[in-house]
Structures are given as structure tokens and as C-alpha cells.
Design a protein around this nucleic acid. Structure first.
Length: 1007
RNA sequence: GCUCGGGUGGUGGAAUGGUAGACACGAGAGACUUAAAAUCUCUUGCCUUCACGGGCGUGCGGGUUCGAGUCCCGCCCCGAGCACCA
């Protein structure tokens, strides 16, 4: 027998796949598409580590299985190659980062190819390629033109020794991690992106919508296309509700309103309302009269007046509040026909105009009642494609990061001045206790506030010291808060008198308004007040008299709001504070003390780095310092060659030192963009040649990864970043797999850019990644993280060489649940190899003439389990099922061609080289196994002829027996009673209950 | 503190409320071999029993149920992420 020579086999088929472009993606619109994407790696000098193939094997298994199942699969790979390591290496060695990047990506490509992944290498992209980053720059310009990019002077961490701006993650405890020098704060102008403008949508779209379909006059949930639409949405796993409204022939608006509201607790801002005919009219009236925020309003042949039908009079006010409706929904669409027997076309046009709605006109379709409604279903399909299927953990992290909180904004005059300040409070239940105010030491308003105070300078110096200490502390929590009195008071709008304003070390300038009203009922505020002897007035007391006494004597603060009682104002006395939140808001708002306000923790995105190795920002400044976007024809704005990679003395990017690059001549086009011009050339008519300076900062390395999944759809397009047609076909990414470390930054930035492109009409979905999964961490054998310094790093090359790529793939998939961290185990690697050895031996027992098989039940069981478990990302159990089958086949003398073929196809996603070898060399096929149809299981074969019953006495198993499958219940129970170890127990009492679970359990309850 | 996971043999891990421990690693025994490796077969949660069997077992304490690793209530521990967010 031939030996299983993994080195020979794997090399052979890898070359074959590459040479024949076996995995080249085509765009066949007859097939259903599937886009499966890995988070593309940064090609570091260290090469691939064993964590990379974990996610990549999983996506490869899915991609291969989908190809077997007849999908058109997009499965690409590329390099996120801008970034610090290559630049730092360049500073040290003088080697151009492009050279390092190329070497590293070559290594990565070789390593990835050695694992047999089925990527389409014709679509490989690299973010540092000018043909790629011209589009990164182009998208930046779209943001700029939309007003989403702006310049702002920001304090940055500056290392005086390295003369370099350090990123936050490079600063450790106030010192530069590379050289240990304390960093300084330096104000530098930075480009910012207004991600905060999208905060609400980034938050809301994490939740999936509810869709409501509202029927019209004389119909119900089963009429027209409603039931089909419901089924369609249910099949796409969208929550949908099609209520039946009362008295449909004689509808009453009030009744419908009550009924509609009974269908939901609250309409959320991601919800979608679809109304047909009178259902549309109902929605128009409802949204005119109620303050509702929804995502989409879809009106299908809506009625906008009663058309003198008596029964409908109740639904139409004289005019709808079109502005209010417009503000209720993010998007409004109207489906209508030009030959509607009830409604004239001009009414639809009028409505579309009033609502700024998209009018989708379908010729000759009457009142749109046909159950077939492909246009609407396609529209709903687009909605469905935007709904996220992400781990709760990642969603929670994003919510946390966005950090929405709703509270009250109080406005108060400052005593002895003519200025007012605003304070934000999310926990205002104890507002009667507010006794002092704190302001952040770095609050920009501080100077103004202190105007006229005697010891102003002393206070400002103290603030400086507080800020210095905060920097030094870094991410450590403060042990003891510090502060100083400003000498100012506010006149409390809610009537607590004059409250002193303190500067407090714990107050944050960039959260809320940076100023807080404080009370005795917050642990931190309480500690601060005690330290500085600020008088306190507790108003909430626990029911426990002993505890209440302690609060009264200011020994402890009471943070337990639910048990507390608000003592003033009297309206609330005797109520538990947690129950009166809403009442308090109304009370305060009514009295005009404060306004509702929502704040977010999310900050705008600092989009510039003073570095060389990044995308140049395509902005220029005229001699007055006014900024202009470069004209599209100027893209890509290429990185110039440079002699020294160090940043300049002033903290500017190294690019600033290249005069010939920075200083240019050009003119302003009619569109307000700037085109450069060679000296000596003439400017077009009506324009003048001016001097400009280029922006010298580069983009952060998150930029290139914020849209790359779109480029994979159309990687060679020179006219657009991606054609609309291709985006419509491939988008969104169906499955996205990568490390959880990107839970917030990358995934939030990517969603942000995608939404901007969506708003510009350049992509068709609101969200880029439909399903997201994070692979678990692979730890070293000792359970610690793998690291060079510990010397416990496993290099995939070594495993591939010694055991083979298929072994590595099977091992990593068999280690445990995909999303869980797990430790490497060399013995288990050998176990995976032994499994493949056994498969190899089994394959030699192939007999082409053999027909019948005695193991068809197990075979079909295996098809079912492997098929289902791959889909559920339960690769470990899928493999264990293949092992069970292999062990059974090992016991067989010979194996039929058919059985072996099925087995090989099932194995091929996991161990593609071995599967291809058996498929071609043993089973004798001439084409690749990769596109063979995936086997299906026959439920009939799953049924065993014999079943085993367990017999339980009072829930404990006492015996078991096998019997033919169809044995009647009475017979099974009777047989169970005769068993020796059962009758023994039955004799000890009387049977008070018999339990029979078909094909599983016979139980007796004996007393 | 908040959020999200998780706790099952010596180990990694399996178990739509229905025979806990599939599959694999490790360990032990045997077959083949001069021998070893490889391969194949058997055993392997703990306690008890010559054996049949019995008892105990899924972090802890309760509950629901004929029956709970699984569902409910109350805790403990571990991991990850966020955190001076008013």
C-alpha cells in the first residue's frame, strides 16, 4: 500500500488549484451568492501564527461546503498593510516600508497557500497599493464633502525624545512605551470624522427590526400579498406582525389605533411599517398624531382621502401633518400603479412630493392586490440583508462604547456674573439633595468662570497639576479625589439655594457638559464633599431605621434609590425614588428647570497620524489657510519617496519636510476642488493659478480596513471603488470571521463608513456584515498566551511540514468550540494525523463493484450531522462524527465506490488535499472534487430497525432492552415489566403511573 | 462596579428535559514483532462487590418534574471586555 505522503500530496494539489484557478470566483446571477470573509491580516514580520488558520480554516470549510452546495462563493484574501511596525523598522534600518510590506505579505501568502485555503487569489488586495488607496482617499473626500470631516486642534501625546506623536495605545502610565520618556501634551491640528453624528444609528441598527404589515379596507391578514410577505420574512428570520384589524368592512380609526398599539410595547427607531391602501392611510393619520420614530414607512397604493366613501370618512383629517410624518421615518417609499382603479396617479405623486418619498411606479398593476409582488419582496430582501446576526458580546461592547445615556440638562446662572452654566445629570432622582457643583479641571469654560476671582492663577495652577497627575496615572483609577473651590456659586434652578462650584479631579470635560450638580446620594460625590467639608442634605433614606440614621448623620451615603424616600418637594413624598423617575422628569420639565438630553460616550474619530506609512490626506490649503479637497483626477495622491522616516521636530509628519511635495501650484475648479498644474502650464479659462500647501498628515491604519470588503467585490475597477451592480450582487458580507479584539474600533469604523456610503446611495445595505463570529484564542500548551519572550510560540510552518496542512486544519477545528479559547496540545495534533492516516487506509479498501452497504444508516446519519454542524460552526462535533464513520469503515472488509465518494465529499472541506487525492487517484475522477454536489441524507435510512428502551423506576434507570422499532406501546411496557431487575422493584410497591416515550423510555412510578 | 461568557472524568470536550461522559488525548492490558515503532483489539468517572448488582456523581443551596448538566429562584468561583461616564 502506498504511504500517505502529505508533503507530496499537498504540494501537488495546491499547485493544481493555483494553476487551474479552481477557486476563481465567477459572477453567475443564476446561482445564489455567498460572501465569506476573513478579517484581512496585517502582514507582520513574524509571519503567520497558529491563531490565523483557526478563523481561516473555518471560513474555508464554509466556503468549500457552499461551493459543493451550488452557491456562487466569494472568498478573498488581502493585506491590511499600512501601520507602525513597518515604519518603525524603516526608521531603524532605512529600508522602505513598501519593501518590508512586500516581503511580509509574500511570506503570509506563501504560508496561507500552504494551508490549502480556497481563496480567489485574482482578487488579492493590499491597502498600501496606490490603486487601492486612491479609493480610500476618494471615500474620505466624500465624507469631507458631506461635512463629516473637519479640522480641530487636539491635545496629543508627544514624546520629546523620539520627537514623535504617540498613539494612545503607545502610552503606558504617562510614558512612551518605546523609550520610557514621559510624554507631553501638545496641541496639534487634526482631522476629525463626525462619527458621533451616526451614534444613534450605529446603536439602533445593532437591534433587529420588527416589521408590521397593515391591511386595508375590507381585507385581513390573509388577503392579497400579506401572508406571502409574512412567510417570506419569517423564512428570513425577521420578526413580522400582520394584525387583523376589527370591523374591517366598517373600520373605526380609534378602534384600529387601539388594536395597532396592542401589537407592540413601543415602536422602536429600527422598526418598519408597511401599509396597504387604507392601511397606508391609517399610518399617515397615526404618524401625524403621534410622536413616533421608525426606520422605514412603506406605503403600498395608499389612500390619502376618503374618495367620498362613507365608511372611510373617519380615517381622514382635512390634511395630514406631512412634515411630522416625514420626520417620523428615516425613509419613506411608495409603491403604486398607474392604473389603480380607486386612486388617481396624481394623488400618489402628490403624496410622494409631500413626503420626499421614493415613488416606485409599477405599470398596469391596478390596486396592487396580486399575491405575487416581486418588487416589494425584493425591497424587503434588501432590508433583511441589513439585519445583524452578531454575538451578543460584540453588540454589548459596541453599545457600551457608544454609551448612550438619557438625562436632564439643567441651566443655572452663576452668582455675581452674567454667565450661565449647564449641567448634565442622568441620575437626577435625588435632585432635592443637590448641594454643590463640580467642573472638570481641563474645562475650556474655566477661564471665563474664574474671571475676577482673586486667586485665579492659583486655581489654574492647581488644575494643571490635576491634569498632570491624571496623565501620569493613565488608565489607573484614582484612589483619592482632589479638588479646589472656585469661589463661584450657581443659583440652583430647582431651589436648593446657592451651590458652590468646585473643581474636581474626577470630573470629565468631554462627557455631558463637563459640569455636574452633585448630591449626598452618590458615593463619589459624597466622599468628595466629606473630604472638603461641603455641607450635605440627604433626602433619601433606607427603610431600615438604623441605616436611615446613619445616612442622616452623614456617616454613609445612600445609593440604594429604590428603598429611599424623596423628602422634598412634597409632590413626591412617600414614593420610592425608582418609581418616580418619569414623574420627576415631567415635574422638572414642566417647571422649566431642565430639558431632556441624550449624551454619548462616543467621541469623534481622530483621523490623522503624523506618520509616513499611511494614506496621504487629499486636502490642500491656500495661502490664507483655507482647505480644499483635491480633484478626483488627482487621485491617487501617492506617497512620495523620502530620505528620512523620522517625524519632524515640530511634531509634523515626515512628509512635511519634502518641500517639493508639500508646495504645489494649482487652480480651483468650478466644483471647488483643486487641480495641480505643472509650472509653465496654463490654467483653464476663468481660473487662476495659486500656490497651495498639501496636508502632510496621513490617515490612521483603520482607514484602509473601513471599506475593503467592498473592494473585493470588484477589485480591478478603475472607474469606481466598486460598481453598484457588483455591490448589489455580492453585498452584504454573509459571514465575517475574525478576532474579538476588533469588536469595537474596526467594526464600528467599518459600520460608520458603510452607513455614509449607504446615505450617498453607493451601497445597498445599511450594514456591511450580516453574520459575525469571533474565533477563540489559541493558548500555548501551558495555558499562557503565546509570546516570543516565553518561547512557547507554535509556528504553523513546522506543523505543516511534519504532519501536513490537513492535519493542522483538522486539529484546529477539533480542538473545541470555535469561539472558545483553548490550549495547544501536541499529542492531540498527532491524534488528528492518526485520524487522517486511518482515512487513508480506509480509502484503499475501495471496491468499485461493490453495491450494497450494511452501514447506510450510519452513513446517512453522518451526512446529516456533518451538514448541520458545519452550518452551526460546530466543527469539533462534525469531525467526531466523521471519526465515528471512519472507525466503522475500518472494520469493513471493503467499501463501495458510492460510500467512499460520499465520505470524501464530506471530508473535503476539512482536509481538502487528502480528499482531492482520494477523489482523483483512488476513485478515479478527472475533475476536482470541489464542485461535486453535497450529499443529501435520506430520512428513511436514519431509522434503525431495532430500538433500545431504557426502563426507569422513579426516574432511575434500572434496565434496558432492544425491540423492533414498531413494537406497540402496550407490548413494550409489558416486556419492560418482565425484566428481572424491573420486576424486583415493581414487587416492592404499586405502580401509580406509567411513562412511555416512544423509542426511548419506559418509566414506572412506584409507591 | 457594569456587560458578556463559562464551571461536566487525569486532559480537550459530547449530550432537542429522557440511559451523563460521544469523539479524541493520556493511561493500562493484550495481539503482531527477535525487539522497537507503527497498526489492531480490549479496559478506563469515583466508591463498593468474587460476581449479579448497589451507592455517589455535571461549582454550591433550594424549587418545578415520573425524570434536571439542561428549566426557575438564590449564591460561590473563574475568564473576557468596559469602567472616574455624573
Amino acid at each position: 500500500m502506498k504511504k500517505y505522503d502529505h508533503q507530496e500530496i499537498e504540494k501537488k494539489w495546491q499547485n493544481y488549484w493555483l494553476k487551474n484557478k479552481t477557486f476563481k470566483t465567477t459572477e453567475n446571477s443564476n446561482k445564489e451568492k455567498y460572501y465569506v470573509l476573513d478579517m484581512f491580516p496585517y502582514p507582520s514580520g513574524a509571519g503567520l501564527h497558529v491563531g490565523h488558520p483557526l478563523g481561516q480554516t473555518a471560513t474555508d470549510i464554509i466556503a468549500r461546503k457552499r461551493r459543493h452546495q451550488g452557491y456562487e462563493v466569494l472568498h478573498p484574501m488581502g493585506w491590511d498593510a499600512f501601520g507602525l511596525p513597518a515604519e518603525n523598522y524603516a526608521i531603524k534600518t532605512g529600508i522602505h516600508p513598501a519593501i518590508t510590506t512586500k516581503e511580509n505579505s509574500d511570506t503570509f501568502r506563501r504560508q496561507i497557500q500552504s494551508l490549502g485555503f480556497s481563496y480567489d487569489w485574482d482578487r488579492e488586495i493590499n491597502t498600501t497599493d496606490p490603486q487601492y488607496y486612491r479609493w480610500t482617499q476618494w471615500i474620505f473626500l466624500q465624507l469631507y464633502k458631506k461635512g463629516l470631516a473637519y479640522e480641530k486642534s487636539m491635545p496629543m501625546s508627544w514624546c520629546p525624545k523620539c520627537k514623535i506623536v504617540a498613539a494612545n495605545e503607545e502610552v503606558e502610565q504617562g510614558t512612551h512605551e518605546r523609550c520610557g520618556t514621559p510624554v507631553e501634551r501638545k496641541h496639534l491640528k487634526q482631522w476629525m470624522l463626525r462619527i458621533t453624528e451616526y451614534a444613534e444609528r450605529l446603536l439602533n441598527d445593532l437591534d433587529s427590526p420588527n416589521i408590521y404589515i397593515i391591511h386595508g379596507w375590507g381585507s385581513d391578514s390573509q388577503s392579497n400579498w400579506f401572508e406571502r410577505a409574512r412567510q417570506f420574512l419569517v423564512s428570513k428570520k425577521v420578526r413580522v406582525c400582520v394584525p387583523d384589524f376589527p370591523h374591517t368592512d366598517n373600520p373605526v380609526y380609534k378602534e384600529w389605533k387601539t388594536h395597532f398599539e396592542s401589537q407592540f410595547i413601543q415602536l422602536w427607531s429600527q422598526d418598519i411599517l408597511i401599509g396597504h391602501s387604507l392601511g397606508g392611510g391609517f399610518m399617515l393619520k397615526y404618524l401625524s398624531e403621534n410622536d413616533i420614530q421608525i426606520d422605514k414607512l412603506i406605503l403600498v397604493a395608499p389612500t390619502i382621502k376618503d374618495y367620498d366613501v362613507l365608511e372611510l370618512k373617519d380615517f381622514y383629517t382635512k390634511t395630514f401633518d406631512y412634515d411630522k410624518i416625514k420626520q417620523s421615518a428615516q425613509k419613506i417609499a411608495i409603491f403604486a400603479s398607474d392604473n389603480d382603479q380607486y386612486i388617481p396617479l396624481k394623488d400618489f405623486q402628490f403624496l410622494a412630493q409631500q413626503l420626499d418619498a421614493e415613488l416606485i411606479l409599477l405599470p398596469q398593476r391596478d390596486h396592487l392586490m396580486d399575491p405575487n409582488f416581486p418588487e416589494l419582496f425584493e425591497y424587503l430582501g434588501d432590508i433583511q440583508r441589513s439585519i445583524l446576526n452578531w454575538p451578543d458580546k460584540i453588540k454589548a461592547m459596541q453599545r457600551n462604547w457608544i454609551g448612550k445615556s438619557e438625562g436632564l440638562l439643567f441651566t443655572a446662572p452663576v452668582k455675581d456674573t452674567n454667565i450661565t452654566i449647564q449641567t448634565f445629570s442622568a441620575h437626577f432622582e435625588a435632585f432635592c439633595s443637590d448641594n454643590f457643583v463640580v467642573i472638570a479641571p481641563d474645562h475650556p469654560f474655566l477661564e471665563t468662570l474664574l474671571e475676577g476671582i482673586d486667586n485665579k492663577q492659583e486655581i489654574l495652577d492647581f488644575c494643571k497639576e490635576l491634569i498632570r497627575k491624571r496623565m501620569e496615572r493613565g488608565f489607573e483609577e484614582e484612589k483619592e479625589p482632589e479638588g479646589i473651590f472656585t469661589g463661584r456659586y450657581i443659583i440652583d434652578p430647582v431651589g436648593n439655594g446657592d451651590l458652590p462650584i468646585w473643581i474636581a479631579s474626577f470630573a470629565l470635560a468631554d462627557y455631558g457638559t463637563g459640569i455636574v450638580k452633585c448630591s449626598a446620594h452618590d458615593e463619589r460625590d459624597f466622599a468628595f464633599a466629606k473630604k472638603y467639608n461641603i455641607p450635605l442634605k440627604p433626602v433619601l433614606f433606607p427603610k431600615d431605621p438604623e441605616k436611615a440614621e446613619k445616612v442622616k448623620n452623614l456617616e454613609v451615603c445612600c445609593t440604594d434609590m429604590v428603598d429611599g424616600i424623596l423628602t422634598e418637594p412634597t409632590e413626591f413624598t412617600g414614593k420610592r425614588s425608582g418609581d418616580v423617575r418619569q414623574e420627576i422628569i415631567e415635574y422638572i420639565e414642566k417647571k422649566g428647570f431642565a430639558k431632556r438630553q441624550t449624551t454619548y460616550k462616543l467621541r469623534d474619530w481622530i483621523f490623522t497620524r503624523q506618520r509616513y506609512w499611511g494614506e496621504p490626506i487629499p486636502i490642500v490649503f491656500d495661502e490664507k489657510g483655507q482647505d480644499y479637497p483635491l480633484d478626483d483626477s488627482e487621485l491617487p495622491l501617492q506617497l512620495p519617496e523620502i530620505a528620512k522616516y523620522e517625524p519632524s521636530e515640530t511634531g509634523e509628519s515626515p512628509l512635511a519636510s519634502i518641500d517639493s511635495w508639500v508646495n504645489i501650484q494649482g487652480y480651483i475648479t468650478k466644483q471647488g476642488t483643486v487641480k495641480t498644474i505643472q509650472s509653465g502650464d496654463k490654467a483653464p479659462k476663468d481660473t487662476t493659478i495659486q500656490k497651495f500647501k498639501r496636508e502632510t498628515s496621513t490617515m490612521p491604519n483603520w482607514a484602509g480596513s473601513s471599506w475593503y470588503w467592498l473592494r473585493f467585490m470588484d477589485p480591478c475597477n478603475e472607474q469606481e471603488f466598486c460598481s453598484k451592480e457588483k455591490e448589489k450582487y455580492w453585498g452584504p458580507v454573509d459571514l465575517y470571521v475574525g478576532g474579538a479584539e476588533h469588536a469595537v474600533l474596526h467594526l464600528l469604523y467599518a459600520r460608520f463608513w458603510h452607513k455614509v456610503l449607504y446615505d450617498l446611495g453607493l451601497v445597498s445595505t445599511k450594514e456591511p456584515f450580516k453574520k459575525l463570529l469571533n474565533q477563540g484564542l489559541i493558548l500555548a500548551e501551558d495555558g499562557h498566551k503565546m509570546s516570543k519572550s516565553l518561547g512557547n510560540v507554535i509556528n504553523p510552518d513546522d506543523i505543516v511540514k511534519k504532519y501536513g496542512a490537513d492535519t493542522l486544519r483538522v486539529y484546529e477545528m477539533f480542538m473545541g468550540p470555535f469561539e472558545q479559547s483553548k490550549a495547544w496540545n501536541m499529542n492531540a495534533v498527532e491524534g488528528a494525523r492518526k485520524f487522517l492516516d486511518r482515512v487513508w487506509r480506509v480509502s484503499q479498501k475501495n471496491n468499485k463493484n461493490r453495491k450494497k452497504e450494511s452501514i447506510s444508516s450510519l452513513l446517512h446519519q453522518t451526512i446529516k450531522v456533518v451538514t448541520e454542524h458545519i452550518e452551526e460552526f460546530r466543527f469539533n462535533t462534525a469531525i467526531s462524527q466523521l471519526m465515528v464513520l471512519t472507525n466503522e469503515l475500518t472494520a469493513q472488509e471493503e467499501i463501495s465506490q458510492e460510500t467512499l465518494e460520499i465520505f470524501v465529499i464530506l471530508l473535503s472541506p476539512f482536509a481538502p488535499h487528502l480528499a482531492e487525492e482520494i477523489w482523483r487517484e483512488i476513485l478515479g475522477h478527472t475533475e476536482t472534487v470541489a464542485y461535486e454536489p453535497w450529499p443529501t441524507w435520506n430520512p428513511e435510512y436514519l431509522i434503525e430497525n431495532e430500538v433500545t428502551y431504557a426502563v426507569q423506576i422513579n426516574g432511575k434507570v434500572r434496565a434496558d432492552f432492544t425491540t423492533p422499532k414498531d413494537t406497540a406501546k402496550e407490548e413494550v411496557v409489558a416486556k419492560a415489566k418482565t425484566l428481572e431487575n424491573v420486576s424486583k422493584y415493581l414487587d416492592q410497591g404499586t405502580i401509580i403511573k406509567e411513562i412511555f416515550v416512544p423509542e426511548k423510555i419506559v418509566g414506572f412510578v412506584v409507591k
